[in-house]
Amino acid sequence: MNLLLLEPGEVTPEGTALLRDQRHRHLRKVLGCQPGDTLKVGLLGGLCGSAIVDATDENQTRLSQIVCQQAPPAKLPLTLILALPRPKAARRICRTAAELGIEHLVLLNSYRVEKSYWQSPLLSEARILEYFYEGLEQAGDTVLPTLQIEKRFKPFVEDQLPAMLTGKRALLAHPYAAESAQGSDTPTVLVVGPEGGFIPYEIDKLCEAGMSGITLGERILRVESAVPTLLAKLFP
Rank of each mutant, 00 (worst) to 15 (best):
Q34I: 02
G15K: 09
E150Y: 10
I214H: 06
Q70K: 15
L172T: 04
N59L: 12
V41K: 00
G196C: 08
V227R: 09
R112F: 09
G167Y: 09
K168C: 05
G9Q: 14
L3D: 03
R169N: 02
A226R: 06
C33R: 14
P236H: 12
S225Q: 08
Y133M: 11
Y111H: 15
P77N: 08
T12A: 02
M164G: 06
T16L: 05
E150D: 06
E195Q: 05
Y111M: 13
L216E: 01
L230E: 01
K168D: 08
L5T: 04
S184W: 07
S110R: 09
G210I: 01
L161M: 05
E103P: 04
T166V: 13
T61F: 03
V53C: 01
K233M: 10
D57G: 02
L172Y: 06
R92F: 12
D37P: 03
V143N: 10
T166C: 13
G9P: 00
G36F: 05
G135V: 00
E158N: 11
A181W: 00
A226V: 01
E150P: 07
L63N: 00
E218C: 10
T229H: 09
P77G: 08
A71Q: 13
P155Q: 03
E150C: 15
L147V: 11
A170N: 05
R222K: 12
T146A: 09
Q148K: 15
V227C: 03
V113D: 00
R95V: 06
E179C: 11
Q70I: 14
E58D: 15
I199R: 13
L4T: 04
N59Y: 11
A226G: 00
K88H: 12
I199C: 10
V106L: 08
Y133Q: 14
G9S: 13
E224N: 00
A226H: 05
Q60W: 10
T215L: 10
P121M: 00
T215N: 08
L78T: 01
L6Q: 01
H104R: 15
K75D: 15
L63P: 02
G46P: 03
E125L: 11
A126D: 14
F235C: 02
S124E: 12
T79K: 14
L5K: 01
F156N: 06
C33V: 15
D54W: 09
D159F: 10
P162T: 03
T229L: 13
R222A: 04
E179Y: 10
A126K: 13
G167T: 10
A71K: 14
A98H: 06
A90M: 12
P121L: 01
A51G: 08
L100K: 01
F235Q: 07
G101A: 04
P13I: 02
E202H: 09
L18R: 14
L172R: 01
W118V: 07
A173V: 08
L107V: 12
C68E: 07
Q60G: 07
G46F: 06
L3K: 05
S225N: 06
K233Q: 14
E125A: 15
E125P: 13
